[in-house]
Computed example of a mutant assay.
Amino acid sequence: MATARKSRGESRILRYLILGTWALVCLLPILWFLSIGFRPRTEVITPEPIYWPTFSLDAWRLLLSDWPIAKYLLNSVLAVGGSVVISLILGIPAAYALSRYEFRWREDIGFYILSTRMMAPAIVAVPIFFLFRSMGLLDTIWALMLIYAAVNLSLVIWIIRSYMLDIPKELEDAARTDGASDLRILWEIIIPACLPGIITAAVIAAIFAINEFLFTLLIASTANAYTMSVALANFTGGSDGIIYNAIALVSFIAFVPILILVILIQKHLSRGLTMGAVKG
């Protein structure tokens, strides 16, 4: 008994050691970027190795004085958050229809929706630009919400649909026997049952929206609607060259919101990533 207990203890220590090492490997690039952001620019660009770097807030002062980082961060949160809400409002009923209703060409329609994700964004960039210009939505957060939602909607529909297919239809039949409508079944039975899948789809859509660059650069023509991705691309230098420490600090700040989001919902996200499989 004592030997078995000792073996389990050693196995647990080994497991924690492996996981801790892997966590450190994953965190090192993030910590490295953060350390560059709090070092003087002269130390960052020097070819000589510096083993004891100097702590400096020069990059932070530069961002606060010359760069409206709070506005860009708010634009990113509004554009990404709004697009995720739009994608879920449209995607959940569409996924329910594709997973539950029997109608002609259902599978063809589902594949067509998914195929829009396979299209190169550059193909529709110019038509989308003229469309939003005719609607008077250029350089607005509303335009970014709509374009992000349009780009990620097909992915959201298929992820949620795969989870809805795993829900037994007997639950819906029992609810219909009690007189529940389809809308009530969707709200009270289907959505709670596939909540991990919905959360997973929302997080993936948010990550894709944050990483979207082409449409953001096309729609956000001025700093009024810049998100962090486009603002960071424009923040590449100053009168005396590239400001590496400020760029590193901005990159870290842009990464923090999605990191906090994943940490807050990691329980639901892990369940959503491990439940079921995508079905055709």
Rank of each mutant, 00 (worst) to 15 (best):
A206F: 11
L232H: 05
I243S: 13
I189S: 00
A205P: 10
G237Q: 06
N234T: 11
I159D: 07
I247Q: 11
L155Y: 15
S229F: 00
A193F: 12
G237A: 05
A180T: 05
F213Q: 00
I199Y: 07
S162C: 03
F252W: 14
M228E: 10
A233M: 10
L165C: 09
G197Y: 01
I207A: 01
T200A: 04
D240T: 13
P168H: 00
I247T: 07
W158N: 10
R184W: 08
L155R: 12
R176P: 08
S181Q: 09
F252S: 14
R176K: 15
C194N: 03
I191L: 03
S221L: 13
A231R: 05
F213C: 00
A206L: 13
R161S: 05
Y244D: 06
A246W: 10
Y244I: 12
I198G: 03
S221D: 14
A205Q: 04
A206I: 12
D173G: 14
Y163F: 09
L186P: 09
A248T: 02
E212Y: 04
A254I: 01
G238A: 13
S181R: 14
E188M: 15
T200F: 00
A223S: 08
V230P: 02
C194V: 14
I242K: 10
I157K: 01
N211Y: 07
A246Y: 08
R176L: 12
E188G: 13
I204P: 01
G237D: 04
L217D: 12
I198K: 08
I160H: 04
L186T: 06
A225I: 03
L171P: 05
A223H: 02
F235T: 10
I167A: 12
A248N: 02
A233I: 05
N211G: 10
T227H: 06
A205K: 03
T200H: 01
L218N: 05
T200L: 06
F252M: 14
S229Y: 02
E188R: 15
L214R: 06
I189L: 02
A231C: 06
F215W: 02
T177G: 15
K169M: 12
L195E: 04
L218H: 04
T177P: 03
A231V: 03
A220N: 08
A206Q: 12
S221W: 08
I160L: 06
W158E: 07
F208Q: 07
I189D: 00
W187N: 14
F252R: 12
L165F: 09
I219V: 07
L186V: 01
S181H: 12
Y226F: 15
I160Y: 06
L183D: 03
L249K: 03
T177V: 14
T227E: 12
I199T: 08
L214G: 10
L218D: 05
I219S: 09
L171H: 11
R176M: 13
I210D: 11
I185W: 07
I189G: 00
G237M: 05
R176Q: 13
I219H: 09
F215L: 04
I198V: 08
L232N: 04
S239Q: 15
D240M: 11
L183E: 00
A246V: 03
D166W: 11
A175V: 12
D240C: 07
A202I: 09
A206R: 13
I191P: 00
P192F: 01
L249N: 06
I189M: 02
A209E: 03
I219P: 10
I247L: 09
S181G: 14
A174L: 11
A206P: 15
D173Y: 13
E170N: 08
S251I: 02
